[in-house]
Design a binder for these strands. Structure first.
Length: 186
DNA sequence: ATCCTGCATT
DNA sequence: AATGCCGGAT
């Protein structure tokens, strides 16, 4: 649901969806129209179709669904791209796996590569290299690191405004001096 | 117009 | 590498 959709708009829908479909088995057994119905209002309905395809893939043979923890295995599932694979590996399994969403891409380029535009294809690839390069050593630390990276982008270093005075990494940020020296620095 | 915890298809 | 997909908020 969070793929290209704001958290604030997902929260309610997610709770309702889980109430209607408590398990992957429930999603797998449902008629597609029911899944689509529970998704209504969120947009990008291909995600709902992909979710059910994913559920039906994982619960085949009636066995309890097992979600892979390896990013490469996750990446093979319908609707799971590079970001979601990294997010599940990192957050659900505490694997030492990088992740780049819109927040991470913006923060990483602003902090480490001010001249890179993450919205271009080359720039986006570069953000993945940075994300891997700055990963901490352990999986447990990676969970916290990735969480913090995304939260920084969601709450402090947003697309429309940079709260540099409130930013915990401003002392090492390469665009801080450039962008906020006059307007933000005390 | 631009943005949002992207992905599949071409 | 580029585009379509959905919809609400800024």
């Amino acid at each position: 649901m969070l793929q290209q959709t704001q958290v604030s708009r997902v929260i309610t829908k997610y709770a309702e969806f889980l109430h209607r479909f408590p398990t992957l088995e429930a999603v797998a057994e449902s008629r597609p129209a029911r899944v689509r119905e529970a998704w209504s209002g969120l947009g990008y309905y291909a995600r709902a179709r992909n979710l059910q395809r994913l559920a039906r893939t994982l619960v085949r043979h009636g066995a309890p669904a097992a979600i892979p923890g390896d990013p490469e295995a996750l990446r093979l599932l319908p609707g799971i791209g590079a970001y979601t694979a990294g997010a599940v590996a990192s957050f659900a399994y505490e694997r030492r796996s990088p992740l780049v969403d819109t927040n991470a891409a913006r923060v990483l380029t602003r902090v480490f590569a001010p001249d890179v535009n993450p919205r271009t294809h080359a720039g986006y690839k570069h953000t993945w290299e940075i994300a891997r390069a700055v990963l901490p050593r352990t999986g447990a630390a990676t969970y916290v690191h990735n969480q913090a990276l995304m939260e920084l982008g969601a709450l402090v270093c947003t697309a429309r405004s940079r709260a540099c005075p409130e930013c915990p990494v401003r002392s090492v940020c390469e665009s801080y001096a450039q962008h906020c020296a006059e307007s933000c620095a005390p």
